[in-house]
């Protein structure tokens, strides 16, 4: 028992590690927010473009979506960081993590928004047309608001899952929570900083996880 406390809950070590890990945590939050904004923004944009009845455009979007929905996040991160420099595009660890995870989230978001737009009953389109709405006004004023509501449960879950991928940034030496904790751990030869990092992740994600359960219940088409 003493050994557990000394190794994993060593207060002295934790106090020492706190500022470093906190700095990493700030970066984790920043990367997560950027990924969510970029991923969902691009996803919504692509989903709308996908509805434009342009075959070439839709085909390109489908390829994009399938590619980034299928590849593991870490594979995308490693490819961007270690592969793209050969094409003359060298990104920093920060930019790599944000871009790679945003690519993945945007693919999922495109798919989710597009399915949601298609899931809105046809009658809504027909009613808008009968009321004299143009295609774009019907899409933006009538269909999208309903589609977004349908998309929320899947989107929340996916956004949380991909934000957790920020910890993968440690693979390209991004000094986020996990990376910082590991570097302190290496110096003090004690894994308590890891416990601290775990606590940070818990405080950040547990409210989101609980909120997602609530969102799922509230927005699910099956709940009545």
């Amino acid at each position: 028992m003493d050994k557990i406390v000394e190794n994993y809950f060593n207060l002295q070590v934790m106090v020492e590690a706190f500022p470093t890990v906190l700095g990493g945590f700030g970066l984790t939050v920043l990367v997560s927010i950027l990924v969510i904004i970029l991923g969902i923004g691009v996803g919504l944009g692509f989903a709308v473009l996908h509805c434009m009845n342009s075959r070439a455009l839709s085909a390109a979007i489908v390829v994009y979506v399938d590619l980034f929905r299928t590849l593991p996040q870490l594979v995308v991160i490693i490819f961007v960081y270690f592969g793209l420099p050969y094409a003359g595009l060298a990104l920093s660890p920060f930019a790599t993590t944000v871009v790679a995870l945003a690519l993945v989230l945007s693919a999922f978001a495109t798919e989710i928004f597009h399915s949601a737009i298609r899931a809105v009953p046809r009658g809504q389109w027909e009613a808008s047309e009968a009321l004299g709405f143009t295609y774009f006004r019907a899409l933006f004023l009538i269909v999208l608001p309903q589609a977004i509501r349908l998309a929320i449960p899947l989107l929340t879950n996916r956004a949380i899952a991909i934000s957790k991928g920020t910890a993968l940034g440690t693979a390209v030496a991004l000094p986020e929570t996990l990376g910082q904790a590991q570097s302190v751990m290496a110096i003090v030869a004690n894994p308590s900083p890891l416990t601290l990092a775990a606590a940070f992740y818990l405080t950040f994600f547990i409210p989101l996880v609980i909120a997602s359960r609530w969102v799922e219940r509230k927005f699910s088409p099956r709940s009545r």
């Binding site: 957790k164 910890a167 996990l178 590991q182 894994p191 950040f204 989101l208």
Partner: peptide, 20 residues
Amino acid sequence: LRSFPVIVLLVLIFYGLPFL
């Protein structure tokens, strides 16, 4: 468990447990 990135768990198990 749903709040932990899986890689944090991996690091805890692979680098943390040996201390025990």
